[in-house]
Design a protein around this nucleic acid. Structure first.
Lengths: 169, 169
DNA sequence: GCGCAGTGGTTCAAGTTTTAAACAATACCT
DNA sequence: AGGTATTGTTTAAAACTTGAACCACTGCGC
């Protein structure tokens, strides 16, 4: 099978995507690091917990929601626990399980930091998009998410003959 | 000034964006790690160089193109040099400067790996988007990029009263 | 020409994060 | 019971990032 290269339009969109996501991730991380002393992922953990019933979630559910490995989550929660923003409890119904619980201190941190974070997201993104574009963004990102999750990793391997095209960043 | 929280639609779009970018970055990194033994950023360096006149670029220009710090680039190029895919040369016109140069070996690696990478991007993204959506994606990402680059980091600070809303991940 | 601010790029030290593999404990199924 | 699958942690190693300090050079004003 010959390689299905990106068209010129796709190429442009892709480059644009790479720039935007890279810049945005950096901007958010920097801001959050300054305001809350933690990177975006850690903030997301607190945020998810704050919305969960009883401010607590099973580790696996949390990892699932954030699309990260359990190992990574364990590490992150360990740090948050040291910070005092998250606690750990055994799960009553499944003794293997553990719940991460947002502490009052964690909630307070979130309340203090959230406005700044929202402002970052707003000034970097939503202030400049029309309502239609917001809908388009959700639609496109949802499509990407589903495509990846329905596992569809593209056929591996297949060393193909080179035909001078862009290598898609 | 009171916090301008995200609307429900913005909230959904944002969550969707977070999931998609996180999953996509992971998928690309995993694939590239398997095929080329390097993460996406490093591949991007090779790719950019392959498109540059004479397969070479000034370090600063490369850092600029990839939106990363010079320090980070120095580290990355050092590794690529160790791998043999990139070389370093002094800049003829400015003796402070250095050029990163794609070696034949680097080019060969790129040629070997590009099809798999393009396939990843395609199956995760472009295979599922309409041409209109490709245009929308470019437009939206371009807007975000410009918003961030025109510095506009949102007013820092401002501890605001909490009104139970989502903390935007 | 000289001094000096600015640029290009690297180095260094420190810390953070990530990964993969192995592991213990428990649940579930038959 | 017994085997398998989950849950979540641990461990050790490696990879990466950061920020500050730093050197070499340029280019400008005087």
């Amino acid at each position: 099978m010959t390689t299905r290269w990106l068209s010129a339009e796709e190429q442009r969109a892709w480059r644009s995507y790479i720039s935007a996501t890279s810049l945005l991730a950096d901007a958010i991380d920097r801001r959050l690091q300054a305001e809350a002393g933690m990177p975006h992922l850690y903030y997301s953990i607190l945020s998810r917990l704050s919305e969960a019933p009883d401010r607590r979630l099973r580790m696996t559910d949390l990892a699932e929601a954030l699309k990260i490995t359990r190992s990574r989550l364990t590490y992150a929660v360990a740090r948050l626990e040291k910070d005092g923003t998250v606690g750990r409890e055994g799960c009553p119904t499944d003794r293997r399980g553990h719940m991460a619980v947002l502490t009052d201190e964690g909630m307070a941190l979130l309340e203090r930091v959230a406005p700044a974070h929202v402002e970052t997201v707003r000034t970097a993104v939503f202030d400049h998009l029309t309502p239609e574009q917001v809908g388009q963004l959700e639609e496109i990102c949802g499509t990407i998410t589903r495509a990846i999750q329905s596992g569809d990793p593209g056929t591996p391997g297949e060393d193909l003959p080179w035909r001078r095209r862009s290598c898609s960043s």
